[in-house]
Design a protein around this nucleic acid. Sequence first.
DNA 1: GCGATTTCTGCAATCGATTGCAAAATTGAT
DNA 2: ATCAATTTTGCAATCGATTGCAGAAATCGC
Lengths: 336, 336
Amino acid sequence: MTAPSIGNLADLARIAGVSTSTVSRALADSPLISEKTRTRIAELAREHGFQLNQVARNLRLGRTQAIAVVLPLGDESAQHVSDPFIMTLLGFLADALTERGYDLLLTRIVPADDQWLDRLTISGRVDGVIVIGQSDQRAVLDRTAARYLPLVVWGEAGIGQKHCAIGTDNCEGGRLATAHLLGLGRRRIAFLGNPAAPEIGARHAGYLAALADAGITAEPSLLLPLQLGSKAAFGLTRDFLAAHPEIDGIVAASDVAAMGAIRALSEAGRAVPEAVAVIGYDDVPFAAHTTPPLTTIRQDLGKGAELLVAALFERMAGTATPSVAFAPELVLRASA
Amino acid sequence: MTAPSIGNLADLARIAGVSTSTVSRALADSPLISEKTRTRIAELAREHGFQLNQVARNLRLGRTQAIAVVLPLGDESAQHVSDPFIMTLLGFLADALTERGYDLLLTRIVPADDQWLDRLTISGRVDGVIVIGQSDQRAVLDRTAARYLPLVVWGEAGIGQKHCAIGTDNCEGGRLATAHLLGLGRRRIAFLGNPAAPEIGARHAGYLAALADAGITAEPSLLLPLQLGSKAAFGLTRDFLAAHPEIDGIVAASDVAAMGAIRALSEAGRAVPEAVAVIGYDDVPFAAHTTPPLTTIRQDLGKGAELLVAALFERMAGTATPSVAFAPELVLRASA
DNA sequence: GCGATTTCTGCAATCGATTGCAAAATTGAT
DNA sequence: ATCAATTTTGCAATCGATTGCAGAAATCGC
């Protein structure tokens, strides 16, 4: 039978026959402790499987060594969505934070009032906050950002916006997608997605800009304000496409929406990309595996996560960081 | 200009002109505090936007109010995988834990040694641990489970296993999938997935059992031990299918694998499901949107998350819980 | 062998909360 | 007004660590 397991620093100190200060310093490799006692204590710690209590340690050090990652479930999307795009970003964030020795506190929030972010920031549970997606909470984000520095947001950097938003240039992405279809000779190009969301709005603006550049007047009826992730999405898409047989190109605001469109077209017997070219957005992991593989606009989430975390740490160190929008990238596959 | 913001309980006590004990009790709605002071203090707290420091509170109360959710990235899958299946489960877990007032600490681990789980359990950062997927870490899980009660695992309940595993009955799932294809008249059925992983192994066992029941001798060459999430997966699948033109049915160990197979078949000009019926596994969110929509074996992750969390809380309360395997379900769509 | 340095160790305060116990204030009865 | 019973409040210890400062032990010179 092994020795009774050691619960705290004091226990270990008792066993070692020294004070807690000495143990603490020994474990922290303080030069104040002689080589001899240091190794002896390290040995004892290993032997008894002792580890410092991180909570107590962090309390004393006035930090938490944890970052909150918030998924605000705005509006109607109160159902349990699990957008592969968001989840991929989350994975990268987990890696980036772990690498720096921080824990990641995952928080899903249905913003019932406008206090949710304040509650989180002053609860003392985390050293910083990363919000994924602005949803319809820009006002809350702006207000909190004015008071709480270590806050960064994945999303669109709007004008007059007070919080630090990091994301891809969605307007450029929308332009890129649309220009690609135009280059393919398509002229009656639909847009699938709800421009009311900031990111989607920017993509739609890019879509309009590209059309204008090509001298084409945008046809308002070719906009389907699709709620991402909604159950009704596929039905709406099918009906929309049936009502608009003239469409020869589709700019979808997400890969999921593009996938639905491809399926609807396929069921209606219209070939992709021959009859209708479809371009997605995000380049989620499965985009390469659809039939046909999805041409799409790629957002480099590895880079995005790295930028988010880098900005957050700068802010935790006290310096405000600007918003950044980096360029998305056209990924050519087979759907357009 | 508003009053300087209140940092801690003592500050608030000073402002209120009472002791910290009184403030603490007032905020906790203790009956020891008169109605008058209670409301006065509550009012002050709101006014100054004061909130208790949760870290300090939990330290005193000897808990953390946080649960670790671990994604062990076993073997070669050290790349940044983001299996939609795992991510969906994660979302449900986040909801279930939040509902009970617990934080979710997300931890990705590449098991370099066999101490990773011990380090986590004795770090004092969490009150319990949920491990998603056994990967190749069964020994570690068993060892830790013997010492640390509040540990539950999403995965396959193997015989002689010491830890509490909760998951669907993978053998039954594999049987279901295979029996469905057999019912469709298919006879040369391939299995896509690596049986070395516990869950996949069980699905493969079910596949073999179904074939045996139908009086068919399983053909070892019809097994493609595909590494899930690997980059090479698609190429391997294509080559495999090209080498086996006799195949008329595919049981895939995941929806992602099924999707790859459908694409490979489609590129080879073989119709799904007419020439080759394909059935997936998991019923991830996009499974309904592939072309054709995926027939698959559904694992009810909402239920799974609920079971995991329920078992974990029982264990945190001190009672050991048994492993459970609940039934998966055949979802009929168009691919088989 | 003795005092002056240098090296090592320990006491006690601290982080921000909670809580048992005792003291103070209030209330009520006489 | 006095005293007992009751209600309210505060002191101080505690959770498990870290760290400034002071005191003990070891080392050194002569």
